[in-house]
Amino acid sequence: MHDSLEADPFRRDIIALIPRLRAYAMSLARSDVEADDLVQETLMKAWRARASFQPGTNLQAWLFTILRNAFLSETVVRNRTTQDVDGRHAAQLASGPNQEWRLRYGEMLGALHQLRPHAREALLLVAASGMSYEEAARICNCPVNTMKSRVKRARASLAGMIGFELAGDVHAGAED
């Protein structure tokens, strides 16, 4: 197996990016099952289209773009019925944890999911995935300044929702 990975750098590099793909998929899909399906779909599409990938370009950005497009396509055709495959909705009916950090984490996740999709996506690409504004802008097909603005407003909105004061008293503006 080791030799086959060395012989195929494309395969090796894709495998190394799976954790980042899954984190991004989780931010979009909001469930383990949907995120895993989205990553699997992304990997299959990437493998089928590997001839169109240009070595030396940004593989992570290419994969994130495939993942994002797969998610958007699925969202357009998705049946609007509520499925509780992983028990997420049922878990909301249970009493919450009493540890302060767990409550704050849950509050932050809830607030994150209340952000507009463009804002949430921008914040997660830049802040959580560690991408540059330029990489995130390419993935989202928008200007770099738009990406910077989305991230700034998303941070301010998120901070306001969870009662965290940002340095410089940043206020959330209208979304684009």
Rank of each mutant, 00 (worst) to 15 (best):
W101C: 01
T81M: 13
V33L: 13
S95D: 04
V76S: 09
A35C: 07
Q99F: 05
L63P: 00
N69A: 13
Q60S: 08
Q99V: 06
A90W: 11
L93R: 11
D32K: 08
A51I: 03
T75Y: 13
V39M: 04
L43M: 15
R104M: 10
A90P: 01
G110M: 04
N98Y: 02
S95Y: 15
S73I: 07
A49D: 13
F53T: 03
D32R: 08
S52P: 05
L63E: 00
A29P: 06
Q99G: 06
L93W: 15
E34G: 02
F64I: 15
T81G: 06
Q60H: 02
V76T: 14
R104W: 10
W101K: 03
L103C: 04
L38V: 10
L67W: 02
A35T: 01
L103F: 01
R102I: 05
L63S: 00
R88P: 00
K45D: 12
L103K: 02
G110K: 03
F53D: 02
Q40D: 07
T65S: 07
D32I: 09
T65Q: 03
L43A: 06
Y105C: 09
L38M: 08
N98V: 01
E107P: 00
R30I: 04
A94F: 13
F71A: 02
A70M: 08
E100K: 10
A111S: 09
A94G: 07
W62K: 05
S95E: 08
I66W: 01
G96K: 12
R78M: 09
A91I: 08
N58C: 14
R30M: 04
Q40K: 08
E107D: 10
L59A: 06
Q92G: 06
T75V: 10
E74D: 11
W47D: 06
A91L: 15
T81Q: 13
D86S: 07
R48E: 14
F53Y: 12
Q60A: 12
W62R: 06
N98D: 09
R50D: 03
H89S: 10
Q60V: 10
D36E: 15
L67Y: 03
T65R: 01
L63C: 03
D84G: 07
E41I: 05
Q99S: 14
Q83L: 10
F53G: 02
T82Y: 13
R78C: 09
A70W: 01
K45L: 11
M108V: 11
R104H: 07
T81R: 14
Q92C: 07
D86E: 05
D37Q: 09
V33G: 10
Q60E: 13
R48V: 14
M108T: 08
N79H: 12
W101V: 01
D36W: 02
F64Q: 05
D32L: 08
M108Y: 04
T81P: 00
P97W: 00
T82M: 13
P97Q: 11
N58R: 15
V77E: 09
R50F: 01
R48T: 15
A61N: 04
Y105Q: 10
R88F: 13
L63W: 00
G96F: 11
